[in-house]
Amino acid sequence: MTYSYQIALIVPAAQREAAKRIAEAMGWGPDNYRVPLSDGAYYGLSAVAQPSFVDALAAAGSGTAPEGVDPADLEAVLPVLLSSIEPVGTRAQADQFDALCAQHGLTRSFEPGA
């Protein structure tokens, strides 16, 4: 299995549970989106991913729900999902995540390097 992408995903707190259900249905296990942002207004994740996951995400954006995923959850999450998908090694994953946060005016609820 080749993990050729590094991804950062962020959702508003209101859609966090639906986003976690989607991730779990896609084989990612429980409790993804565990990083609180802007005092818990948003939650994010950083991970490496296989091309099949990126393809499934793209297909979901086109209206095709991945197998096992509740379309209602997709409908709730996709419009508000913030994402960054890059080939592995483009930059440090923490930099990618922080850049996505900055792009949307979000801050981590702790200082990662202080």
């Binding site: 296990g29 991970a47 923490a94």
Partner: peptide, 21 residues
């Protein structure tokens, strides 16, 4: 949790477990 898994790295004679921070 898949997103919370560190990754395996290898270069030359070195091997490591890397956290994404």
């Amino acid at each position: 949790t898949a997103a919370a898994r560190p990754t395996y790295g290898a270069s030359g004679s070195h091997r490591w477990i890397a956290g994404d921070g």
